[in-house]
């Protein structure tokens, strides 16, 4: 699996009388951290890329392909949500198998891939557990295991670790980094912890009031003085 670029060309959308307009480029095989105040449109941006929202204008490219009008399941994208990533009435193995083929029946060969993916996220032997018996961190690991077996070039993470404690959150981010290096996929991660994001991300996408204000390498991004609204967001307004 190799990552693909994500390009939004003058994509606009209105929701509840609020205008969004996005224009950005995320390089293939990198991690981009999406940050910004609440309501800035971070989740909307990911929803657009995943296909849960359709743009009013503009085009969306993943790699060389225009996916603007494709169904979510047809896009080369996997999205991990903040919660409800698993079907609570199905066991861990079945939940992951659905990533390989969305059918009732699973192939015996799939079992091996499921076991491998579970081992990769540190949950070896969890096949027959039910989601209800897992902790929040374990459930998100299962969701990431499913993302692994799906082998889609782009992984979208919408604040997937927001509900976890600092230690767990760091472990999960490191896991994402490891997996990204291994697979070479492109990762977009929405987060509320800019410092943590900077630690694993190659680039930062900063959003404010429904538009992308700045995109740049994470190195030194937060010290830049030329980005409107950034200091305010970081709480460094009155220095």
């Amino acid at each position: 699996m190799i990552g693909k670029t994500v390009d939004l060309n003058a994509v606009t959308l209105s929701r509840d009388d609020f205008e969004f307009s996005f224009d950005t480029h995320v390089a293939a095989g990198t991690i981009a951290a999406v940050i910004g105040p609440s309501g800035a449109g971070k989740s909307t941006l990911l929803d657009l890329i995943a296909g849960f929202e359709t743009p009013r204008e503009g085009r969306l490219f993943i790699g060389e392909t225009d996916v603007t009008n494709d169904d979510p399941s047809d896009r080369p994208v996997t999205m991990v949500f903040q919660e409800n990533n698993l079907f609570s009435h199905l066991d861990v193995a079945t939940n992951i198998c659905l990533g390989i083929r969305p059918r009732i029946t699973a192939d015996p060969a799939d079992r091996a891939r499921v076991a491998e993916a579970l081992e990769r996220v540190g949950l070896a032997g969890f096949e027959s557990r039910m989601p209800g018996s897992l902790s929040g961190g374990e459930r998100q690991r299962v969701a990431i295991a499913r993302a692994l077996v799906r082998r889609r070039p782009v992984l979208l993470l919408d604040e997937p670790f927001a509900a976890l404690g600092p230690r767990l959150r760091r472990d999960m981010l490191l896991l994402v980094r490891e997996l990204q290096v291994e697979t070479g996929m492109t990762v977009l991660i929405v987060t509320h912890q800019p410092d943590e994001a900077a630690a694993i991300a190659d680039s930062i996408v900063f959003l404010d009031k429904g538009r992308i204000v700045a995109t740049g390498p994470s190195e030194g991004f937060f010290r830049r003085g030329d980005i409107e609204g950034l200091a305010d967001y970081l709480g460094q307004g009155e220095k």
């Binding site: 399941s73 999205m79 409800n84």
Partner: peptide
């Protein structure tokens, strides 16, 4: 609310 996005993204 629990399953719509998940089923859509997995293509079930």
């Amino acid at each position: 609310a629990r399953t719509a996005r998940l089923t859509a993204s997995l293509g079930i």
